[in-house]
């Protein structure tokens, strides 16, 4: 069976960095950006697992992303990026 790309993520990340390539694009690993505690966006996610106004759980290639906050709504959602609006209080990778 083909090995999962992300199992070698730390190694691949090193290679990508050595070649000065943007790792998120080359490896398809997820990234999270929080803007001033009122906007958060996750790139390269796989799917939405759970969503309500207190908690958003996303499935990604390295595990589960859990973003907690208040009055969260999904501002936009596309194939590879979710943008959340609302008060972001924390996030966790499981």
């Amino acid at each position: 069976m083909r090995k999962k790309r992300t199992e070698n993520a730390p190694k691949a990340l090193k290679v990508a960095k050595a070649l000065e390539l943007p790792p998120d694009v080359v490896l398809g690993i997820p990234g999270i950006t929080v803007l001033g505690g009122c906007e958060a966006s996750v790139q390269n996610y796989k799917g939405i697992v759970e969503y309500d106004d207190k908690k958003v759980v996303l499935n990604t290639s390295i595990g589960i992303f859990e973003i907690t906050g208040e009055e969260l709504d999904i501002k936009t959602v596309t194939d590879d990026e979710v943008t959340l609006h609302g008060k972001v209080t924390g996030f966790e990778i499981k």
């Binding site: 969503y51 501002k75 959602v77 596309t78």
Partner: peptide, 13 residues
């Protein structure tokens, strides 16, 4: 919906 290329925005629970 996203998988079938439908664009959604301002989702509120």
């Amino acid at each position: 919906a996203i998988k079938s290329n439908i664009f959604l925005w301002d989702i509120k629970k």
